[in-house]
Design a protein around this nucleic acid. Sequence first.
RNA 1: GCGGGGGUUGCCGAGCGGAAAAGGCGCAGGGCUUAAGACCCUGUCCCGUAGGGGUCCGCGGGUUCGAAUCCCGCCCCCCGCACCA
Length: 904
Amino acid sequence: MFAEIEEKWQKAWESAKIFEAEPNEKKKFFLTVPYPYLNGNLHAGHTRTFTIGDAFARYMRMKGYNVLFPLGFHVTGTPIIGLAELIAKRDEKTIEVYTKFHDVPLEELLNLTTPEKIVDYFAKEALNALRRIGYSIDWRRTFTTTDEAYKRFIEWQFWRLRELGLVEKGSHPVRYCPNDQNPVEDHDLLHGDEASIVEFTVIKFKLEESDLIFPCATLRPETVFGVTNIWLKPVKYVIASVNGEKWVVSKEAFEKLGYMDKKVELLGEVDANEFFGKKVIVPLVGRSVQILPANFVDTDNATGVVMSVPAHAPYDYVAIKELGAEIEPIVIIRTDSNGIPAKEIVEELGIQSQKDPELEKATKLLYKKEFHRGVMLENTGKFAGMMVSEAKELVEKELIKSNLADVFYEFSEKPVVCRCGTKCVVKVVKDQWFLNYSNEDWKKKVLEHLDEMTIIPDYYKEEFRNKINWLKDKACARRKGLGTKIPWDREWLIESLSDSTIYMCYYILAKFINSGMIKAENLTMEFLDYVFLNRGSIEDAKSSGLSEEVIRKVKEEFEYWYPVDLRSSGKDLVANHLLFYLFHHVALFEKRYLPRAIAVNGYVSLEGQKMSKSKGPLLTMKKALEKYGADVTRLYILHSAEYESDADWRAKEIEGLVANLERFFNLVKEHYLREKEEITVLDKWLVSRFNRAVKEVREAMDKLQTRRAVNSAFFEVMNDVRWYLRRGGKNLALILDDWIKLLAPFAPHICEELWHLKHDSFVSLERYPEFDESKIDEDAEKAEQFIEKLLEDIKEVRKFVENAKEVRIFVAEDWKQDALRIALEKGLSEAMKELSKHGIDKADIANFAKRFKSAELIKNERELIESSIEFFERETQLKVSLSSEIPEEKKKSAMPGKPAIYVC
RNA sequence: GCGGGGGUUGCCGAGCGGAAAAGGCGCAGGGCUUAAGACCCUGUCCCGUAGGGGUCCGCGGGUUCGAAUCCCGCCCCCCGCACCA
């Protein structure tokens, strides 16, 4: 129903260029939202984040700020390439998801076989949807992350980060497919997406009088002090040369070692039976212990060689018992009891054999307990007295330092299988480029800046603080994907989250680039240094080939718009993008250019179901707009949930909203242009209530609480308006100018249409309503409340009378009014004294005392009722009058603010 | 496990020391209508033939004249823990 109106105003805004922001004398507000990734159509999740952003942009604009709200598109990385391949391959599932959920017509979809075509198509679709929803975006600044100029900008950024020592080479473990010879991403997995990569410590036990090493893999290196023997499975093992040492490992382990950045060579096969009974030396301790057989050993887990700590490892304890070996467990950790921890838990769970699945549970329970509450005992040398949680890391460090241990990466769960059917391995990728987010100095600066920022909701600041502390180095280069090459090592592409950290300042360049004033080749190091970092002079910047005038202009605009005042984002970006956003700004920019505020919002689910771009279900922005139109969609999504809580999109609810919005539209149309009539108490009440709503809405919006704001601005005002009309109000127009303005950030099209019934200006540029204390009328509000309650009471009483014809209302006698006044001022006892002085009946006084708490002083109570008689009659369809002809005992119940009611 | 958030009436959700507890949705009844829809009104924890009474905010304790709201313990749910946008 509103489609035409919406299109009309979108065109009007566009041709009046009212959202094209240029520096001026006003205070600026720079608002950004994360650019969308174009491997599909924009969906309800984008709709939520962007609509919150737009509502706030509009709100700030109406509060008198010069608002810049731009948006670009993100296409770098692997998903778009992957999608192109899948479409080219005619992958069934992909075709289904993209036709069914992304609403791409089949014939168009089949054509999207290259990344470029995909980007073109979805960029066009996105633009259409974003325009149709009426965002107040400055479209002159849009761009795509594969634009030549953008790449220059990214290269510049990486040169500067490297100069600061924040990009370095290192190695790290990845999930890897030996067949594809590539790292495997989550969506390329057949099995095992739950598995994570865990780091085993491999402790080297030397065979006595030999150079053979038994590398025992463990997750609890601190228990090395309690080792009583080591285990091998009675099967064939191999001897391998590993970085020059002779290791005995399982066959599976040998294969895996080859991927772990080690020099590995097969020397020969060997039967574990040959070693049983022989002795190895426990590192750090120097104790000599036996090699024994155990069937629970999994040769496909890590090295396939295990150390035995029967006091603390249930498996070991049970294996030793089953073997009947005369080995005394050595307790090295104390928690609460004095016994042998593994023994206790095994007995408690009634475990009998190595095959008992309960052993897994016992191991986990004991591990947890000892890790969090355990203390290292005297027999652990210099670690004695430490908490286990602390000792674990230190023991490992010590062992590795003295070349007594190594690390071995393994999946936490198995199998992990690639889409191609091959079992994945953990591969250590070397010579990889890293962003050094673990750098303490860098972190410290970020944390310091965080303290000065506004985070919405505020408790997320703590979350950010923790995440900043947890953040580790990030591999920032890839071999595959779209994007910018690392400028000093062109084998590598900059990974797509790493090229999206400070692009908000690129919006300032984008305007000049899009207009042709600046070309990609003008973006030289000197120019960007000068504009963004205040490095070098304008003379240096001229080497870009740009004129001084242009350089000056760009610089001025950057100075005007930066920093970003608010970045509004979905919560999925907290642990990654938003952190990088902070880190990179802090690393590169001067303090005055650092981000001011971040707001976080939750996900959107669909009728209770999680949405998924790659699997469905999905509701695209386009579809929502086709079905409901812009303002309904906007209002709905803004009202659906607050802050980081997740919203659930429900067709049934949104349909209810359509009706509400139509009612609003018709109501305003009907009353907006009416002649004003004489002002009554009721009018004052309306204005007073409306003013409170204004206050509420502003307070809510200042904290980005769109749900609360819409609730108040739309639904609650609507309820007041209904009451007002029901009461016979004639001057609704009193609040309509302001009501339209109040709603304009949320439902801008309808508001624009209504506003123009009376005005020539754009409501989008009007001043937002102010709260006016002087318009608050306590008496009027009290009076309305009184009438409402009285009506309720009349209806209540009436329920109990059959064939009611008439209502008589009896207002409390004057003496009660007087007494209440005294009681409120001087206390009840004073009032009672006064009453007896005037010869009021004792029983009456007692009755009054009992009930005075529920009484209230209403100004002109009698007149108020009198003027509302007609209203009461209309509402009850009964004859209503003020009368003293009611039974005596009813009269007694009359109190100020609560008249006696008699229905007959 | 660590970190962050949360458990409120049929559902979604506000409230965060003094109201059976905003608002929305759903459901029921009434009005309007030739009818349906829309719209308007009423009800929606239990009891009640006079505007009243009782019970209630994950569970169990405590503080207080008074607790959904504060404190302690327990149970349960959601999200992140990455190299993926």
